[in-house]
Design a protein around this nucleic acid. Sequence first.
DNA 1: CGCAAACTTGCACATCGTGCAATACTGCAT
DNA 2: ATGCAGTATTGCACGATGTGCAAGTTTGCG
Lengths: 211, 211
Amino acid sequence: MQGSSPGLREAKKAATRRRLNAAARALALRDGLDAVTVERVCAEAEVSVRTFFNYFESKEHAVLGDPPPLGTPEARAAFLAGGPGGDLLADVIALLDPAAVLAGEDREALAQVMLLSQREPRLLALQIFRLNAHQDELAALVAERRGLPAPETSCHAVAAVAFALVHRACRDWFDASRTSGADAVPPSLQDVLDATREAFLGALAPAPTRS
Amino acid sequence: MQGSSPGLREAKKAATRRRLNAAARALALRDGLDAVTVERVCAEAEVSVRTFFNYFESKEHAVLGDPPPLGTPEARAAFLAGGPGGDLLADVIALLDPAAVLAGEDREALAQVMLLSQREPRLLALQIFRLNAHQDELAALVAERRGLPAPETSCHAVAAVAFALVHRACRDWFDASRTSGADAVPPSLQDVLDATREAFLGALAPAPTRS
DNA sequence: CGCAAACTTGCACATCGTGCAATACTGCAT
DNA sequence: ATGCAGTATTGCACGATGTGCAAGTTTGCG
């Protein structure tokens, strides 16, 4: 009965990982991060303390869980296929739009993570660090799409703006969820961009082209 | 002989703080962050371990030292005085330009901190976290300058771009320092911006204005 | 000089994170 | 099914981190 040949072991590991993550998140939400000890999390998840550290390197990592990849492999390929001539902004939106990214995720868990990241500076720090890694990844993608050997300043700038918009869209969605119920409209990056573009161009465009 | 009435105590504290910072930085540079223990730092700085934690909350904080403020109070006031109609980008540059900010700083220490932040992920995480706080501060300044009650999306976007440019300028300066000697030209934000503007507008401007 | 406030220090304690070796379990081939 | 090889779990020991507390020490000021 090995219908899932490459699977029973993996499944158990994944389950343990999810149990630890859920337990850490729930406890942090209930009692605050400082009151959460690895020991308590392990009691909840029914594993030994030593095993905990085989899965996560700290309780903060356990609370946040594994970082999601930057878009699906297909989405990344499609983005690269756009090439230097494509509509960069539109494709960035397609790659990062929270409405799409959130589709396959557990929204409840995401909302909890966002709430915790606001409350607990240590979680915020880790979150920002991970976001920064994603940002660098996007800068590299932009450079590759443009045929550049390494990401230059403008690539980093584009990535920074994109993540600022995503961050803002997620915050708006989160705030809306807290006030108007759990099922607020999924945020659209395009909308956020449209609302921003005017002020944005106002900041960047009017500069003279220098001779 | 109390020429420095409000001072001997303060001076001693400042000296101890500087000794701890210098010791932590030097040790991390020589032996790597993991090999640095609080105990070793304290031996170097000639204070007790307990006292160390009266000054810094972790060895990472000790290595990085205290975060500098975002511009001088005068520079901040000048930035706000620009008002909604002023040249936002020019004033952001004036506020953040590394060439100006670095003027009053210990460049040797700064270069060491940047090197360490590249080597040690834990230091990078802390550095990014601090940078993010600065970014939020700038977004708030932009909002206030515009007469907005709270920083909206475009303010955050402007701040994100500004810091992406600053970060890039600092990296360029740092890389240049490592190759062409310790006294590389101080980076100019304006130059970085000029080099970026074309690609940037290429990314943002060509989008249709939607009816 | 001498008191009050602030700084330093030692000590105890809970927690974190890792290396190591023993044990238990899973997958696979016989 | 049975046993072997690889992998996961666990306990243990240990060094390091960070904090509360209370005693000692230094500074500022009358």
